[in-house]
Write a protein that binds this DNA or RNA. Structure first.
Lengths: 217, 217
DNA sequence: CAGAAAACATACAAGAGTGTATGGAAACAG
DNA sequence: CTGTTTCCATACACTCTTGTATGTTTTCTG
């Protein structure tokens, strides 16, 4: 005899898939960090009991492993492809900026969450470090294709990428109008060259039009 | 009747001060993060029981508050003073580099630990954000004193500081010989000017002489 | 060397989180 | 519609950590 023959089906689908758990866990990972990725709270969030979890996963470790795979699958490639197609210096840099601002293509919050996680886990740290290296290398290669010497290309790539990482890490919040006003200065600092005014205007027009006043989220 | 009339005095002083607890907590904070700052483990580390802790502190929160104050007292000012005395562009930038490399003056590991902590605590986040702003402002003011326009000075300050933050955040590890080989490129990227060869050589000679092959720790 | 104050030990209570074992409900194949 | 298989609920055991209450030992003071 059961006290509750049918579960509370107020707001949940009949059956949960493994991916449903991963999805929910990702949200918590991004919003509250790895420490908050707990089976108990996830179960509550999904309106099931922990029994369900232990059917889909062997334990917490396996779930965390899946989260790392998900991150790798999502955020790898978007940056690199932006650079691969780029011809001119303007095009590449601006495309990169666009990717970093457009959170549909690149998820900086997830990236940052994984980065936080990596600081307390050797395994995750290794994976993230590898990813960072490949990103910097891609940017450096782009600089080299645009006439920069190897060392300078590498350092400029690093400065560009590191600045962006801190942008998220420090949670810089500034309206898009303000941010685009820094475009010329950023470009000058990152490349050592002056940006083509036409390209700058086009970029600014597109960015301010697409709304996106928030950077942090 | 007590089972153990005298405590195990194998390797500890007779009495602990409040600062002893803070010092131990700082080590754990830096090494393992806020989450690892636990009364139980600290007590074990100090060879006392938790009873001691609750005499010196009302609870965990008070200890954490003390840690934040300690960080603020230690890492605030060192950066700013390096810039205040600087005359030429070379002098200021190189002094800044020196401060960041010399872990006796500036503790990047502590800085990073607090930064990690800040990402999960609103109160800490506010304090750190304020500190970051004042640091960037100080660098920007320095750039302005050296002939850069306001906006460009601000962006260059940000890029310089943000790059440095990521250097620690991503745990870049490279031998000092390699790092100093990037000096010219870094200087060019950060300032848009060429470094004075004599100043560069003097800096490199001093850095490589002072040993310090490790950056991470 | 008493007595008070400071510093610490011990024991208990409570909460949160994980993992396991097992029984019951849902979905599906035949 | 019956029997598996899949999926989830329930209950229990265990660990870790915090906080409190109270007793015991040092250390300081006069």
């Amino acid at each position: 005899m059961t006290l509750l023959s049918t579960r509370d089906e107020s707001k949940r689908q009949a059956q949960l898939t493994r991916d449903d758990w991963i999805e929910a866990a990702l949200e918590v990972l991004v919003g509250e960090g790895v420490g908050a990725v707990q089976i108990t709270s996830l179960a509550k969030k999904l309106n099931v009991t922990r029994g369900s979890f232990y059917w889909h996963f062997t334990g917490r470790e396996e779930l965390l492993g899946s989260l790392l795979k998900e991150w790798h699958a999502r955020n790898t490639g978007v940056m690199l492809s932006a650079l691969a197609h780029a011809g001119s210096l303007e095009e590449g840099i601006l495309d990169l900026f666009a990717v970093w601002v457009d959170h549909k293509r690149f998820d900086p919050a997830l990236d940052q969450a994984v980065r936080d996680w990596a600081r307390r886990s050797q395994g995750v740290r290794d994976v993230v470090a590898e990813e960072d290296e490949s990103r910097v290398s891609a940017i450096a290669a782009f600089f080299e294709r645009n006439g920069f010497a190897a060392t300078e290309a590498f350092i400029r790539a690093r400065v560009l990428y590191f600045t962006q990482v801190s942008y998220y890490a420090l949670g810089v919040e500034e309206p898009m109008t303000e941010r685009v006003s820094y475009l010329e200065a950023y470009f000058r600092c990152f490349t050592g060259r002056e940006i083509d005014p036409a390209a700058a205007d086009a970029f600014i027009a597109r960015r301010t039009a697409e709304g996106g006043a928030d950077i942090s989220k």
